[in-house]
Design a protein around this nucleic acid. Structure first.
Lengths: 170, 170
DNA sequence: AACCGGTATTTGAAATGTCAAAGGTCGCTG
DNA sequence: CAGCGACCTTTGACATTTCAAATACCGGTT
């Protein structure tokens, strides 16, 4: 069981921290754990300081840069969240008075979500804190490295997008 | 509104794809979207080919390298998932016969989860496919870049861990 | 032996997440 | 203008997620 080639391959992914895995798997595991670490921290702070959740922040960010509002389908694409999920998210944000929903008379299939004035104010404050937190968390990493990482991860993103069924703009 | 410094900062995070944001924010947004892209793909394939979910895969991976089993608290730490969540995950995996739960007589507060024989078999197949999928998705990225990315992201992870309350082993 | 602080897990409420199916609406075509 | 395929959103079933409170148990003290 430990002697044939197949089982050695399998052990790579699972044995030791990530020591014997193939480079792609090691990179993936590290990306995943790092992302989890950061988003857990951001989520806690958003909750503590603004009583908001990460998906709500993401959704509001999209609406912030499209002051006229966005159709729910567009929101779904931009936030990489499914349609059904967007429905609930917008519902809750509307209940809090941060977002409004409207159906244009031109096409009554559509629902457009838009930030209220208060939503805009609240998001501004959250966005500012968000940037500060990230600078804080990445304080030990030089700006050069950050910029170069940004570019390198772009390669990974493009490669992944290329090997999917659909195409992924950024 | 577009003239004072504060509002310019705010626009950075939200205006254009990620064009005018600070480097840390740009990196974070790209890490997040890339991770989402990959995990969505992996999740779909896991579901289609094995009827399993990503968190189940993660949990089984931990149990696979600890044949004697792990306490739920340990599982929680290693998978970066909360205690309450582990309970439900293990419950469902047990219902499918992939995992068993036992309480050692020595300390009856503890619950130890362990892969069944079938669980081990199933996970082996999943792990092999998992590695193949990742190589496939990252096929356009050279191995050198992957290895160097792995190291660079390590810096980000360490910096983040340093600016958290707790310590994060890998 | 009853108590107590600490540890380990479960439970319950609320939010997020997917997927598939159902409901409306639009535009075009016969 | 009735029908039909395509598009957009909602709904419903289920899984995952967190947090906080409750439960259960251990070890040591009194």
């Amino acid at each position: 069981m430990d002697t044939d080639v197949a089982s050695v391959d399998l052990e790579m992914i699972t044995h030791g921290p990530e020591a014997r895995a193939k480079p792609e798997t090691r990179l993936w595991l590290r990306m995943l754990s790092t992302t989890k670490l950061i988003s857990t921290e951001i989520r806690k702070r958003l909750r503590a300081e603004f009583g908001a959740t990460l998906p709500q922040f993401d959704l509001m960010a999209q609406l912030y840069r499209e002051r006229g509002g966005l159709r729910l389908g567009e929101l779904s694409k931009r936030t990489m969240v499914t349609n059904g999920n967007v429905t609930g998210l917008v519902e809750r944000l509307e209940a809090e008075g941060l977002v409004v929903r409207e159906t244009p008379t031109a096409d009554r299939r559509v629902t457009v979500a838009r930030l209220t004035e208060e939503g805009t104010r609240v998001f501004s404050a959250m966005a500012e804190a968000h940037e500060t937190w990230l600078r804080e968390l990445m304080a030990d990493v030089g700006t050069d490295r950050i910029v170069s990482l940004w570019e390198e991860i772009g390669h990974v993103k493009r490669s992944t997008a290329n090997h999917l069924s659909g195409i992924e703009g950024e």
